[in-house]
Design a protein around this nucleic acid. Structure first.
Ligand code: MN
Ligand code: MN
Ligand code: ZN
Ligand code: ZN
Lengths: 148, 148
DNA sequence: TTCCTGATTAGGAATTATTCTTAATTAGGA
DNA sequence: TCCTAATTAAGAATAATTCCTAATCAGGAA
């Protein structure tokens, strides 16, 4: 059993539990997501997918990604005010964002994930998730600067 | 000398340093920002401002807020994929965001601001700012739920 | 099988936040 | 006063996302 089969089992179960049909479109969007390790946009998924599924519509991609987000299969990100990105990695992690080239890299920091929040925070409400954004200049952009 | 005079001095100096004229529009937008302790949108500033400056244009508000952001007078926030919010508080701080009502509250956590980042992070590039987003349900929404 | 029903989709129109274009206005310096 | 560069108002344009609707699909009942 390949790792993809494993993932396909997962989506079948999740759709079933949610009472959502696993249509060919949903299945293909899911498979396309599997081939992206990073943070694709709906537009990118749509464009790639159209190569082998020419009749897919952008609306279906948006709708399906929203459903997948609700099911917890992917995560919608709000890290730029341009297009929404989707995270194919649902493990708890954070992000580094290059202010020059907008590159988004995963950051893992389990010690921080476990750290207690200040007391003043619990006074605001019930906290469910924490997400750290580190902004700066990535190495690639730093190199360009030094050379150019 | 009132606290507002103090702030007005600040904007005069900053505009001067940046070689940017302090036009009546920019001054009024700045004064309007002073009256918002929270995270107003460009639209809100525009609407409020139009009451006493009926000819102001939305474009000028957007342009000026972008300039103020570049000068470091305010901070553009990307916490939702709806309208951009601007932070009138430029001191280092973080945010709690209610997933129900979209309320945005400031969080101060100086110990975290001083904490060293993991080594793997410095390998990605040069970090300039850190911004933590805590997502959850605010007390007001929790109360509504219990009552309703 | 055939019919019915509800879910889903494709396609395009609509929405909406933001930016762009352009002509008019402003203010300061020669 | 005249010139020039910066800035503005107004509305058009852009672009990401959502909405609308008719067509398609799939599963169950008859
Ligand atoms: Mn990620
Ligand atoms: Mn704030
Ligand atoms: Zn970069
Ligand atoms: Zn709330």
């Amino acid at each position: 059993m390949t790792s993809q089969d494993n993932e396909l089992d997962k989506i079948r179960k999740l759709c079933d539990q949610a009472g959502m049909k696993l249509t060919p479109q949903r299945l293909e969007i899911f498979k396309e997501l599997l081939s992206h390790e990073d943070h694709p946009s709906a537009e990118l998924i749509f464009t790639k997918l159209r190569e082998r599924l020419p009749t897919i519509s952008l609306d279906t991609v948006y709708r399906t990604l929203a459903s997948f987000d609700e099911l917890g299969i992917i995560k919608k990100l709000n890290i730029s005010n341009a297009r929404t990105l989707f995270d194919t990695n649902i493990e708890q992690h954070h992000h580094f964002i290059c202010t020059k080239c907008k590159r988004v890299e995963d950051i893992h920091w389990p010690d921080f994930d476990k750290a207690n929040l200040p007391e003043s925070v619990s006074a605001l409400g019930s906290i469910q998730t924490r997400h750290l954004e580190l902004h700066g200049i990535c190495n690639q952009c730093l190199n360009k600067k030094n050379k150019g």
